[in-house]
Design a protein around this nucleic acid. Structure first.
Length: 790
DNA sequence: ACAGAAGGGCTTTTT
DNA sequence: GCCCTTCTGT
């Protein structure tokens, strides 16, 4: 092996053929072709569950094994970090250590890597901060306030949404201004917001999420010699979930697959290596495009063949995941989207069980059904970790969680309010960001008076004006606090904080993140202040901060060389689905969006109601209802063996209860595929093909019924059990040391009387299995269930 | 400067 | 139902 001439670029790989046939074992002819095809561009249309990850990993392994490519010449883009980790692992299993040098990451991570290396080319430093959506909203909020733009009717979410959209289209302030209508005061104001926002980001040495992609494209276009390095380096690009790429991501791919210009390379590389464009493989399924709201452009995949004229397309339709009943339902639903290439999933697995349908009176009733069915599945031998519950909006978790806690079902919520969104964690992170990137005023403002140091808004404004007048950073202004004529106490507090930050800052490139954090927490007195507080919640907050400290230690263990910047990058880019830990034996709860790319033995798709799925907000958007249908389709196709569709007749929203109607999509599923345990009356009267409601009765025993009548709906079926006498509240009950033993009689506020059959678990986690007289068998967490001993 | 109370607005999905 | 902003009194 000859020496490597440029750190980025290894030599040409030797081409000695050798393709291990084991890589093709167990593949169908189409999959084989997708692994073996060689050419400039390949589009793999991979239906849900068609084994695309297998194909992709084997394709990469093949390139490595046959010596067509060095690991470092491969760039594979996935949608989530979790998917990247899985792909890396699976390629590693096929080819061993070689997997190390490949770039397998998300668009965002790959771009951060490039930008950290190249930021100095265009006015940033490598220690730039990444603003997440909350950060960028905070900045926009400030700007709107400064400009009094709210009097024009500008809201933060409007402005940030519009800016994000423009950035996804690679529009910057200048190009937007060119097409702007200057007679429209609204547009002028928006332009000013956009301009300031862009300026502030640059001054803060920060990129927002959209910039990570957009600025990388800009970098490649403005600096051809930089682009040439990466064009030459990456010989094989593979992009997963191509249907969800936006225009900026598409442009990035185009840049990377341009032919390498000889003259743009450094002298020592000229004439070395191939100057052909890199080969491109994209995998996707337009039926699973669910991110149009975020700028994903389905045309990228639909027009691939036009974009890359010498491309080859391979269609994978055989499904290896689900039963035929589930696939029939999925096919039936998706065929209602008219503007799609016809594609039908099929399997050789067999029909399998019917889909189970259920209509609850309320979200809680629905949740109870889910909990009960999960218990039954468990009895059939399906592990908790193989069961997932999906919903359209995060707000729906509340009812599910309440019931799951009561029922002692182990669960975890993927996404939702994450650890890093907690105020105390953001505070601690802001300390870290402040020392990593002193130019960032957003982080500095957050910690300036946290913990309380007597530096209030007035002082902050004074500091900021001084900074503006002297054209220095906010941080620099703080160092000159004694020149501002502030009170001695405030001045001392500012100088004290600045000195502490400056001191820690000296160590950022060398010290471990955990040591830096510990030092900052000590010097700032943050944890101390939390512990001293008399707010009982602050104790928990202090523990969360300790938890963050543990996270940094764990990070250093996994990345011995990892710097503070590496840590901050990792934290900025972790997504909801990324903390997925398959080994934990719990039921998984997540939104339909998070569910993409995952699969489970049993899937509960909840809240299949109008205004929820499809969501009310999608109704006005062009293509909205079709995208919602794809979302439903994605949910259905996650299931291997068992699928449950559930809804409620009433749903709590904004604090009060509304009547809910069955989703239009339910009628698109052939009636004989669904076994309704309790069917929605509405679906019957509209579709006419489904079985009549069972046991329909007008006994007025449930408020659900009367609400339906008030709304002019036919009477709902009434189950004898589980009419919620009392609303389940979010308050944590505590039965203290109530002890129960097998044989005891108890009364439950919702289920009535029953007999304890068995008690398991210890202490606060003791669980009673109870046979109720009318409501069946339930598992209850003794400590908090609404029960009394008789 | 800050704590606590009262009032308004809002939630689709996320890298 | 909750969170965030604003107002009021110290």
């Amino acid at each position: 092996m000859s020496t490597v001439l440029h750190p980025l670029i290894p030599d040409e790989p030797p081409r000695d053929g050798g393709f291990n046939d084991a890589l093709l074992d167990g593949l169908n002819p189409r999959q084989r072709e997708a692994v073996e095809y060689r050419g400039s561009a390949l589009l793999i249309i991979a239906g849900a569950g068609s084994g695309k990850t297998s194909v992709l990993t084997r394709r990469i392994a093949g390139l490595l094994q046959s010596r067509e490519a060095w690991p470092s010449q491969i760039l594979a883009i996935t949608f989530t970090n979790k998917a990247a980790a899985e792909m890396r692992e699976r390629v590693g299993a096929l080819v061993g250590q070689q997997a190390e040098g490949m770039w397998i990451s998300t668009f965002h991570s790959a771009c951060v890597r490039i930008l950290r290396r190249e930021a100095e080319n265009f006015g940033f430093t490598k220690s730039f901060t990444i603003y997440d959506s909350a950060d960028s909203r905070a900045l926009i909020k400030r700007i709107i306030k400064e400009l009094d733009a709210d009097t024009f009717g500008f809201t933060v979410s409007q402005a940030s949404g519009k800016i994000s959209k423009l950035k996804n289209e690679l529009m910057d302030v200048e190009s937007y201004a060119r097409g702007a209508n200057f007679n429209d005061p609204n547009e002028v104001m928006f332009l000013e917001i956009f301009r300031r926002y862009t300026q502030e980001l640059a001054r803060a040495n920060a990129f927002d999420f959209d910039d990570l992609i957009g600025q990388t494209v800009y970098l490649f276009r403005a600096f051809p010699q930089v682009a040439a390095l990466y064009q030459r380096r990456f010989r094989h690009l593979l992009v997963d979930e191509y249907q969800d790429t936006n225009h900026a991501q598409y442009a990035l791919i185009r840049e990377l697959t341009k032919p390498v210009k000889q003259g743009d390379l450094p002298l020592d590389l000229q004439g070395k290596g191939s100057l052909e464009p890199a080969s491109l493989t994209v995998v996707g399924d337009s039926d699973q495009s669910i991110y149009a709201f975020r700028g994903a452009d389905i045309r990228n995949i639909v027009e691939f063949e036009r974009d890359f004229p010498r491309s080859k397309t391979i269609l994978l339709e055989q499904n290896y995941r689900s039963t035929q009943n589930i696939l029939d339902a999925a096919n039936a639903v998706i065929s209602n989207n008219f503007d799609r290439k016809d594609k039908k999933l099929f399997t050789t697995i067999g029909a399998g069980e019917k889909i189970t349908g259920f209509t609850g009176y309320s979200g809680h009733d629905e949740a109870q059904f889910v909990a009960d069915e999960i218990t039954k599945l468990r009895d059939e031998g399906i592990a908790y970790k193989d069961i997932a519950v999906f919903y359209r909006t995060n707000a729906q978790t509340r009812a599910l969680e309440e019931i799951f806690i009561r029922s002692a079902l182990p669960y975890r919520v993927l996404g939702g309010t994450k650890f890093y969104e907690r105020a105390e964690i953001k505070d601690a992170m802001a300390y870290l960001i402040t020392v990593a990137n002193p130019a960032d005023p957003l982080a500095l403002r957050r910690i300036m008076n946290t913990p309380k140091r007597g530096i209030g808004p007035a002082t902050e404004t004074a500091l900021q004006s001084w900074a503006d007048d002297h054209d220095v950073s906010l941080r620099e202004a703080m160092r000159h606090a004694d020149e501002l004529g502030l009170g001695p106490k405030v001045t001392g507090a500012i100088l004290g904080l600045t000195a502490a930050l400056d001191e820690v800052q000296l160590t950022v490139d060398t010290a471990k993140p955990s040591d830096i954090l510990a030092e900052l927490l000590k010097k700032s007195g943050y944890v101390e202040a939390l512990r001293a507080s008399r707010d009982p919640q602050d104790e928990a907050r202090a523990e969360n901060v300790e938890e963050l400290l543990a996270v940094t230690k764990e990070f250093s263990k996994n990345n011995p060389e990892g710097t503070l910047l590496d840590f901050l990058t990792e934290v900025s880019l972790v997504a909801a689905a990324d903390d997925l830990d398959d080994t934990s034996g719990t039921v998984s709860l997540m939104t339909l969006h998070t569910a993409k790319g995952l699969e489970y033995e049993a899937v509960f798709l909840t809240g299949v109601e109008e205004d929820l799925l499809p969501h009310r907000m999608s109704a006005n958007e062009p293509g909205g209802p079709a995208e919602e249908r794809r979302l439903f389709y994605v949910g259905i196709t996650r299931a291997r063996q068992r699928l449950y569709l559930s809804l409620a007749m009433t749903r709590a929203q904004f604090g009060d209860v509304n009547v809910a109607m069955p989703s239009r999509y339910l009628q698109e599923i052939p009636a004989d595929l669904i076994d309704w345990k309790q069917s929605p009356g509405m679906a019957n009267s509209r579709g006419g093909t489904q079985p009549r409601a069972l046991n329909a009765r007008r006994d007025g025993s449930s408020w659900g019924t009367s609400l339906r009548e008030a709304a002019g709906l036919p009477p709902a079926p009434v189950r004898e059990k589980t009419v919620w006498a009392s609303e389940v509240t979010g308050k944590v009950r505590d039965n203290g040391d109530l002890t129960l033993a097998a044989g005891d009689r108890i009364r439950h506020t919702d289920f009535g009387e029953g007999r304890v059959m068995e008690v398991t678990g210890e202490g606060a986690k003791r669980v009673a299995a109870v046979q109720f007289d009318t409501a069946g068998r339930k598992r209850l967490l003794i400590k908090i269930a609404p029960i009394e001993k008789l």
